Computed example of a mutant assay.
Amino acid sequence: MDMQLNELQQQIADACGKLLERRAGPARARALRAAEDFDRLLLAEMSEAGFLDLFGEPEAGALVAALVTQWSAQAAALAPIGARSIVAPSIIHGDLPEVIAVAEQGAMNAVRYGAEADMLIVLDGDDARLARRGEFRAEPVKSKFGYPMARITEAKGEALAPGAGAVARRWWRIAIAAEISGSARGAVDLTVRYMGDRVQFDRPLATYQALQHRIVECHVSTDAATWATREAAFRGAPAEQAATAAIIASETAQRVFYETHQLTGAMGFTTEYDLHLYTLRLQTLRLEMQGLRAHARDLVEARWPAAN
């Protein structure tokens, strides 16, 4: 895997970055959350520009789909980019609606974008089924954790090909890890700026070595999650690597949440400051798919199948 973006990837990065700069950002996320809404307009523009359909493109593929998901999260985009651009095309061929949610059978009390979804992918072990709007019932759930959430009941729909659930589960981990790495990067960058601006005892916070060590640990953890996710996507999301990326990302989410709020002091615990737009999402993402323990269990099963 080349650690540098190739020419096509750089062109996509530039174009996607310009779109996200115009249409996303903390102010946009804040306004949408206040209205209890999500960014359907951004999804539509990304779809029209082709950014949501790169998974199956030979010259772009899953790696670039993961990059787009990461960049979107870093820009605080409030839309189900990963579900639409990574999870759904991994098991569904043909045209896809813009708004897609992913849920796990037996854990559908808090599904991101469940009430807004035109299509719901339900994973049940190694199997999966596809429910379109009208084939499932979604009850919005009030949440302060960064995303619109819903409780799903009576999800019917059609069964997908045998093994589709196992495939989607691997790519769902990639999507989660990409969103975590992007959100964590947004939180770390914001905190670095704060530490440079905030003065205590006539010195910026960023000049204190003990604080430098803590923010550097966040930076290193975020980089680890980023590169583990990109490599797993590049290699086609083998079960072991997908689980590993999700584990690293989950641990990063916990570290970055704790440290960035500590390093920004009282300001970091107020909703007037943008930090929570990233970190509360980290709390949601690190618990998705039943969280770290489930990722670790599946890693053990992938690495040592004879032990099961």
Rank of each mutant, 00 (worst) to 15 (best):
Q290V: 08
T284I: 01
W227S: 00
Y208E: 05
T244R: 14
A66E: 01
V111C: 07
I86N: 00
R286M: 15
L160G: 10
A35D: 15
V68K: 11
A210Q: 11
G186K: 09
Y194C: 00
G268Y: 00
P80D: 03
A232G: 02
R173K: 15
L67G: 08
L8R: 15
A110H: 13
L130K: 10
R281H: 11
K144T: 12
Y147Q: 13
E98L: 15
A266W: 09
Q70L: 13
M119E: 11
D37C: 10
S47Q: 12
E59L: 14
S72V: 06
G236W: 11
S221E: 09
Y208I: 07
H93T: 14
S183D: 03
A237V: 03
E217Y: 03
T270I: 02
G165I: 00
Y147I: 07
M195I: 06
A76F: 08
S85R: 02
A206P: 05
A24G: 09
D14A: 13
D202W: 10
G17H: 09
A76V: 11
P97S: 06
L190C: 01
Q74A: 15
T270F: 03
Q209L: 14
R33C: 00
L299F: 12
Q11P: 06
D223P: 01
I81N: 00
A73T: 03
T222R: 05
E57H: 15
W304C: 08
H276M: 12
A232S: 11
V220W: 05
L20D: 08
G196I: 05
Q241I: 00
M149W: 01
Q209M: 05
P26V: 15
H261N: 13
Q283H: 12
A128Q: 03
M195N: 06
D298K: 12
A29S: 14
A307F: 13
W304E: 12
Q10D: 13
A138G: 05
I12K: 11
I86L: 07
A155C: 10
I215W: 00
Q254F: 07
V99H: 01
L19K: 08
L277S: 02
A232E: 00
Q9W: 04
P162W: 04
E36G: 09
A35V: 08
G106A: 10
W172V: 02
A166Q: 13
L19G: 06
R169E: 02
P140Y: 09
L41V: 15
A62G: 04
R185A: 15
G291W: 12
R169H: 10
M289G: 02
Y258M: 12
E231Q: 14
L5I: 02
M1I: 07
S181E: 01
P162H: 02
A306I: 09
T279R: 04
V192Y: 02
M149R: 11
L67R: 14
M267F: 09
Y194I: 04
D124Y: 04
L123G: 04
M267R: 13
K142Y: 10
H213W: 12
S250W: 01
G50E: 03
D127V: 01
S90Q: 03
L67T: 06
F201K: 11
Q254D: 13
N6P: 10
